[in-house]
Nucleic acid binder design. Structure first.
Lengths: 218, 218
DNA sequence: ACTTTTGCACTGACCAGTCAGTTCAAAAAC
DNA sequence: GTTTTTGAACTGACTGGTCAGTGCAAAAGT
């Protein structure tokens, strides 16, 4: 995990990048532990130990355990959103269709999950909880990611490439879920499969080539 | 939530009714609280209070907090599996195709999630965790549910109705994910939508009717 | 050159509170 | 008469958060 690459080393701290490096180590330790055990079951002592720093250092760098977690969330979803948007724009630049863009975003999603599996686990596990401190953070951050997919769907309809009867938010959610669950299952239960395999299976589903001869192409 | 209806199959006589009712109340209390807060953040005192029983009663009925939770999991997934299987068999009985069966299972899944949203939340939140006591329980139980979908896909291929190039386990996982995430999003962010709306959106995706007039791409 | 001071980053023992699980006598329900 | 539930007290382990103090590199003072 390299959840934390966007911090610049020049902003507030005058003592070089030492502090950023510590925060980075804490992110990495926290994301793994929380993905495995959940937020409440993970102790600050564990995080500190895994990061190789003292417990006090955690509180020197973050106001609380929850704040550490929230910053982790914002950071990770930021990376995902950027990756999805990049895939969509690259496709457009290369003259691909909107379906091609969706396909490229599926792949980008898979690459992300393959690279940051722990973060993905943690995100899914917390997303639909209620009554938690970081619920609002999570909703904002979710909407950013889903919006990228929704935009492509909207453009596809506007261009007449997609049926204007599709339900944008529901379809976007379903697509995200398809990728999310398939990828997590891949990681957890069939890690030997290649990314291309998984991509091919999802691509087929997206493009309605599940039915035999009669449904898809002619 | 009525996550405990199947217990009543036996032990109807011999003084078991009262105890079952207590266990039922504890299931209902636990599923809600754990869905909201997570397993570790939920205390036994809370569960007892919500169920309207004394703490001692919890330990009279279940060996431990974990055991209560595991039985809850087994129970809930049992209900889901039965529901999916029933949908599949009903479709077959009525002479529907395998795609019809998948469609019926999507609806059954939505109905289940609509009825037991808390259980679904909890299940998703725990499914991909590692290093937890009930991991093996969870894997067994997951496979039971996914297997129902896989069976239908397999039959569909054998009957020549579905392309023999689809990847059964991956496609099954993707379909489950599609329903799961779309439904949870529906509940959490667009609760005003009807079940039929959601079903229609997913149905369209399943049957490749996303692209405009021309199905698939050229 | 060398000493002294400053303050950031970090440390880890400590504290006050919390929680799962136990115990058990007595009451209630069957 | 037996099963089930109650409810409060208790234990012992664990946890989030605190804080006085350490180390050290650069700046200031001599």
């Amino acid at each position: 995990m390299t959840i934390g690459a966007m911090e610049s080393s020049r902003t507030v701290d005058s003592g070089g990048g030492r502090r950023q490096a510590t925060r980075q180590k804490l992110y990495e330790a926290a994301v793994t532990l929380i993905a495995e055990q959940g937020f409440s079951a993970t102790t600050v002592d564990e995080i500190a130990e895994r990061a190789g720093v003292a417990k006090g250092t955690v509180y020197y760098n973050f106001a609380s355990k929850s704040v550490l977690f929230e910053e982790l969330l914002r950071h990770g979803v930021g990376l995902l959103t950027a990756s999805l948007r990049e895939a969509s724009e690259r496709t457009a630049r290369e003259g691909g269709s909107k379906v091609d863009a969706l396909d490229a975003m599926i792949r980008a999603g898979l690459v992300f999950i393959d690279r940051y599996p722990a973060f993905t686990q943690l995100y899914v596990a917390e997303l639909w909880r209620t009554n938690r401190a970081w619920q609002s953070t999570l909703m904002v951050v979710r909407q950013q990611a889903v919006a990228v997919v929704e935009d492509v769907l909207r453009d596809g309809i506007a261009a007449g490439e997609l049926s204007d009867e599709i339900d944008i938010p529901l379809t976007a959610a379903a697509l995200v879920g398809m990728v999310l669950v398939a990828a997590l299952d891949w990681q957890a239960f069939q890690p030997e499969r290649s990314l291309d395999d998984v991509h091919a299976a999802l691509s087929r589903l997206l493009q309605g080539r599940v039915g035999g001869e009669r449904a898809g192409r002619g």
